[in-house]
Amino acid sequence: MLKVSSLEKRFGGLTALKDVHFSVTQGQIKAVIGPNGAGKTTLFNLIAGTLRPTAGDIRLDGEAIAGLPSSRIGMAGIARTFQQPQVFTSLTILENAMLGGHRYHRGDFLSCGLGLRHTRREEEKLRERAEKWLEFAGIGDIAHRNASELPLGQQRYVEIARAMATGSKLILMDEPAAGLDDTETRELGDMVRAISESGTTVLLIDHHMDFVMSLADEVLVLNFGERLAEGTPHEIQNSQVVIDAYLGTDDDA
């Protein structure tokens, strides 16, 4: 469903990503790993439209999305969660999740200001949709709390609920397990599996090797901006190039 070919990103003289190609199939959980500075987050920013690629092609179900503004890519069906959870702290948890489904409704300035009935029906649908995904993320019971009151782990669940409420085909998760303890990481793993079972494809970055290896169907390894290896967790764990690249550079394994 996602096909990336000969993707390149240069920042001035620095090449952050070079000739990266891989694909993600429908319903898969795919992980991107690599040492710090390997270009993982840059790759996500290119797919999500936060950055424009210098060269290369990104296709979502055949539709070329490389270089489009992020709102267009969001509309095409890609949602994301961030390394530092980005919840709207002045909104409630429910309102955060309601923003996920926002793009499906059309109530304009005039009809919202006049409080016309159809905008109120829309609002009801938005709320139901948001509540469903908050339940899914296990935070349905605190939906009316302010998002600023939440610890890091739960902020991540808010982000997941919000991303799922967008109804996207593909969800990009940038280090979802960062800063979580073992129990929380296990819960998160279950949630990612449930996301994948619901039919949404997952592409995630993470440093926790056991987390990634137990979860992913396939792994892509980046090193210094280049594609080093790609394969099943088993293949990657036994790949000599990967072991060489990681030895002495990463302490997570």
Binding site: S70, I73, A79, Q86, F88, S90, L91, L126, T166
Partner: peptide, 25 residues
């Protein structure tokens, strides 16, 4: 307007426009 979906989107834009865009808005 402030308590509608538009108000919600605007309050979110005030906090972080790039994140709002990433939601396809």
């Amino acid at each position: 307007l402030a308590s509608s979906r538009i108000g919600r989107a605007l309050r979110a834009i005030r906090e972080g426009e790039p994140i709002v865009s990433s939601l396809g808005i």
